[in-house]
Design a protein around this nucleic acid. Sequence first.
DNA 1: CTGTTAGCGCCTTCAT
DNA 2: ATGAAGGCGCTAACAG
Lengths: 351, 351
Amino acid sequence: MTNERRWADTSGLPPAPDATAKPVTLAHVARLAGVSENTVSRVIRDKGSIAPETRQRVNAAIEQLGYVPNRAAGSLASSSSLIIGVILPSLSNIVFPEVLRGINAGLSATPYRPMIGVTDYDLDIEHQLIASLLAWQPAAIITTGFDHTVGARRMLENSRVRVAELMDIDNAPIDLAVGLSHHEAGRAMAHHLVQRGYCNIAYVGHDWTADRRAHARYVGLCEGLAETGLSLVAECRTDQASSTLEGRKTLSNLLSGGVHIDAVAFSNDDMAVGGFMHCLAVNIAVPEELALIGFNGLEIGQVLPKPLTTVLSNRFAIGKTAVELLLAGVQRPDETVKIDTGFSIVEGATA
Amino acid sequence: MTNERRWADTSGLPPAPDATAKPVTLAHVARLAGVSENTVSRVIRDKGSIAPETRQRVNAAIEQLGYVPNRAAGSLASSSSLIIGVILPSLSNIVFPEVLRGINAGLSATPYRPMIGVTDYDLDIEHQLIASLLAWQPAAIITTGFDHTVGARRMLENSRVRVAELMDIDNAPIDLAVGLSHHEAGRAMAHHLVQRGYCNIAYVGHDWTADRRAHARYVGLCEGLAETGLSLVAECRTDQASSTLEGRKTLSNLLSGGVHIDAVAFSNDDMAVGGFMHCLAVNIAVPEELALIGFNGLEIGQVLPKPLTTVLSNRFAIGKTAVELLLAGVQRPDETVKIDTGFSIVEGATA
DNA sequence: CTGTTAGCGCCTTCAT
DNA sequence: ATGAAGGCGCTAACAG
């Protein structure tokens, strides 16, 4: 980034409008500048060619009147708005807020604004949100993963808006996918543990029906182990959403099973941090007695007495990259695009 | 909540529109139902009285055509949109996403959608965001705290939109304030520590220039101590934003000062959890050698080997309550309103 | 309870 | 490089 100058700057400190006064419109600006409304509109949108002198007069008038364009009128006239619809599965842990942070960062120097919805991992809710966001004729819709209801997929395909599916790249996108291969990330976790000499490896996870990517990592993990002739010696899953609390409980459950385990792969860092806390509480030496590996690379894992070994997903980059690509081309490209933002093993001290 | 029936239900699984076909409009629905556009509009908005039989025919036509109202047109015609502008200082820790979660929860059964902006604690950015959101003629703007630029305040006061200022209630709101008294919360922390018998109390904090509420808690803390004849024996502040990492470092700095300290009040839970990690790493017994108290009541604090003693702020409730009050009355009330969502001491095991 | 008439403020298309 | 005309889809005000 970035070409700030692409976007008309409507900030600054305009004289605040009087509550009683009618809001300033294009017509007012046009009259003051002594040009037609159309010319003012062109200046604002930086479209067509305008005489430098005219542009200057118009900008002066805009500033003098504190003109702020009415977005609803613009949207109606152009059948498309400066809205980016953003659909997130959840706001309950820090992962999706970080994606949103990336989206916001990509948008902050533009006149586009994110309008958000939260699905709670429910595809029917996603469907409704898509319909509801499409009613605003947004420039793009950003959602998560490749699972959608049949109707939702059709709406997205048939609409002319650009669509980004985030987090995952293991499937065919509607338009643009930005994320990482969770399957590969799972394999990488397996290989890391095996290389470190662990061979009694177990899994602690959370609800897969909601979080399909966690399942993809699990499958990759098993596959990675199989490639070295190993397999999981035990596993324990909660049917709850992931949380440190569930991680703590679920590891405790796993260990009460009596199987000899020397390393645990967790479905994500929240679960892993919870597991670490369990070890602290019952005096299990990490990693000597039990090694732990998480997924995500959250800050909290790096502040533990022993920094958590984990896999970094580039959540901020996923959001930011998606927005940049979306805004780079208004038209949906002929070919779908997948962007791999990658992952990397964070060599902590717990595995 | 709630009275779902107040809001026209435009969900369901309408036949997805064909990309080539013109989108369905009110006129199409009106023709099919054999009524005027206006009647359809009334049915959708549930305004005025409609013959049950007419309503039914209209609804059937809407469903049959998969009609989705064009929000831009509606906004333009009514000079007000179904947008709630939400301005947050940050998305980097879990606190504001939880407020947003509350806002979203309050909005989910309504046709209103949040449009968001992030200030990074910068009032000039807030000012620009307010201007930019006001361009959408939102039904309300939700922001944080009472500090705004002169221009921003004027824009909000002069606009007819409802305004909620969240988190804090220690000042006079423009329209509605929902939050808690951070000053009182600070006092409560002081009294809690003193009651527990600690008398060599120190403070570990983060950047106040950005986070004025953290400062308010500090002032309350000092005042609370003074009420019992005490004062802080030491304090250490980082000029960074709060994080577990900074908490860990800053406590380490504080303790290297050589002053005898038996309890530390932290500016928030992120800092306190970091402090706890420091104690674990250097083998300081908590709370025997050093007691710790945080602020916020984050989940992570409750998963520590010893649950963190802290002060619960009701972040979800703040967001949800604000939205409910905002939507309860479209008009700004004559008198400003302050809602105290309160706080409570979480009696953990660290103080 | 329902229909008619005018816009809302801007953008697109076509002229010049 | 600029202007004129028309309409985007909906809602408000007024009839009836």
